[in-house]
Amino acid sequence: MNETTGGIEDDEGSGIVKKFMFVNRKAPYGTIYALEGLEVVLISAAFDQDVSMAFLDDGVYQLVKGQHTKALAVKNFSPTYRALEGYDIEKLYVERESLEMRGLNADDLLVPVEVLSSAAMGDLMKTQDVVIGF
């Protein structure tokens, strides 16, 4: 098995480039969705697809600076979001309403993002080929 692509040979899926959007709606800790979701995003980078990530609802907490998980005895995986750029995953969209509702703004986040209104986020989702929510 090819470790990078998770069992897919490099020549499979060749030529087709789809718009993949990974939609993150849950807090980083408390459930495993954010962590395992991020694993899918990293794998997708090996397939030369048009990948973006959206953060809505409690999912915006995934990007908040200064996460400390020692007391929870779980891994702080927030540095991974900073590494996404190295995988050419640079389209990160955050819903404005979700930020505002939680008293946050773009300065509170670990990485540069594009803040979009709920309506604009919806329009962007409509343009995607594959939307996977975590």
């Binding site: 098995m1 090819n2 692509t5 998770g6 069992g7 899926g13 397939f47 697809q49």
Partner: peptide, 22 residues
Amino acid sequence: ISGLGQLVEAGIQADRLVVFGD
């Protein structure tokens, strides 16, 4: 049992990927 690449590949190859979850 296989890797996550199988999911991404399904997204690429299928006309629609339908997700069932929480």
